[in-house]
């Protein structure tokens, strides 16, 4: 029995040699269960060891293997070659991010933004171990839970044209995580985060394209995080003189 093969066109870029990226096509054998990531691993193992890409867990948890597959941001570990057959695949590094080499992008900008939003619970008062844990009801947990599912895979940044047009924009995932902590009943760090929300680089660079929420592999809705904070920021803008520490809830 001969095995089916599919053409994978990969965007290659070697910063030491190439002036700009160009495509290279590989013919890859595949079975029903072969993921796109496994297709790339086949290329690296059998055809061209210099192909560079990130991956780790192979099961949609680590968020390392996001790439553009035929122009759509996707995790390559949970996309399958069979779904593109008999056509071919064009794999590119995530859009809107600087290409470091081949399919690997530079994540520095996002990591700095993630740090800037204080992505951790800032309690009103620290509680000692003896005093026990911070308690939360299921209803309180429900208010932020979906936003905490983010795995920092950056598909939403590749989906967001406003980030592509102006990378000063904080962007979908960082705003989703900002909202996640602001919506947590145990957190009291809103005043520290609101200046980011209120800035042009915060929520106001967004025009609700909405593609970020479409491509998220974990069912997070970053578009709602950004746009609900437009309401919060607007209330904060008009009522800041009446309630000094952020009137909006």
């Amino acid at each position: 029995m001969t095995q089916k093969t599919i053409d994978i066109e990969v965007l290659r870029y070697n910063p030491e040699k190439d002036y700009k990226p160009s495509y290279q096509t590989f013919e890859v054998p595949f079975a029903d269960e072969t993921s796109v990531l496994q297709g790339l691993q086949y290329i690296k193992d059998q055809l061209d060891g210099s192909l560079t890409f990130r991956w780790s867990c192979r099961m949609e948890i680590c968020g390392s293997c996001g790439m553009m597959i035929n122009g759509v941001p996707n995790l390559t570990c949970s996309s399958f070659l069979r779904d593109y057959y008999p056509g071919k695949l064009r794999i590119e590094p995530l859009s809107h991010l600087p290409i470091e080499r081949d399919l690997a992008v530079d994540q520095t900008d996002f990591l700095q933004k993630l740090e800037s939003i204080h992505p951790y619970i800032i309690p009103k008062e620290n509680q000692s171990v003896e005093e026990g844990p911070f308690k939360q009801t299921p209803a309180q947990r429900e208010r932020f839970y979906q936003y905490s599912e983010c795995i920092n895979c950056l598909l939403c940044y590749a989906a967001c044209p406003q980030y592509g047009l102006d990378s000063d924009f904080l962007g979908p995932a960082a705003m989703a995580l900002l909202h996640r902590y602001n919506s947590d009943s145990r957190d009291d760090g809103k005043a520290e985060r609101m200046p980011i929300v209120n800035a042009q680089e915060g929520v106001w660079a967004c025009t609700l394209v909405g593609y970020c929420s479409e491509v998220c592999p974990k069912g997070v809705d970053p578009a709602s995080a950004v746009n609900r904070n437009k309401v919060n920021s607007t209330l904060d803008y008009f009522f800041r003189f009446m309630a000094p520490k952020g009137a909006a809830e």
Partner: peptide, 23 residues
Amino acid sequence: ATRRPYMRPMAGWWRRNPFYLFY
């Protein structure tokens, strides 16, 4: 290795995906 990150141009971005076209 030398670092020379490459930024792809955005011109015509809205023609690249049906979702953007509808937007």
